[in-house]
């Protein structure tokens, strides 16, 4: 049984949706965070590690999450794994941001 990410030849695949969307700001920022965290002068996260974290998502989550949703989940997993951030810290900061409202 191949992993959920290993889609080549996956059975019962349907039509390809060719609609494109311009990346939203948070998606661009997620991309930017990975580029920066994996840059030669930081090397906090390597691309192979990101892939491993994405490929370890529960199959149902993998199939239903958006592309950059998978990315930011994987970035969070890796930053916690590497003791750069803690989950509690991220939860707390996220709560603060909600309380502040979308002012940024």
């Amino acid at each position: 049984m191949p992993g959920v990410h290993d889609r080549g030849g996956w059975p019962a695949a349907g039509p390809i949706n060719k609609t494109e969307h311009a990346l939203s700001f948070w998606e661009k920022r997620t991309d930017a965070l990975l580029v920066l965290l994996s840059s030669a002068d930081r090397r906090v996260i390597r691309v192979d590690e990101l892939r491993r974290a994405i490929e370890s998502l529960p199959p149902e989550a993998y199939e239903t999450m958006g592309y950059y949703e998978r990315w930011i989940s994987a970035i969070e997993t890796l930053l916690i794994e590497k003791n750069v951030l803690t989950k509690a810290e991220i939860d707390r900061k996220a709560e603060q941001l909600v309380e502040q409202g979308p002012t940024a």
Partner: peptide, 27 residues
Amino acid sequence: YEQRVEAIQALLIEKGLLSADDVRRAV
């Protein structure tokens, strides 16, 4: 997910791993 991105970015900046300018330039 937007909250997670915002929170992670804010914390990484607080810890000095990157700056808001770095993020802007990467975008």
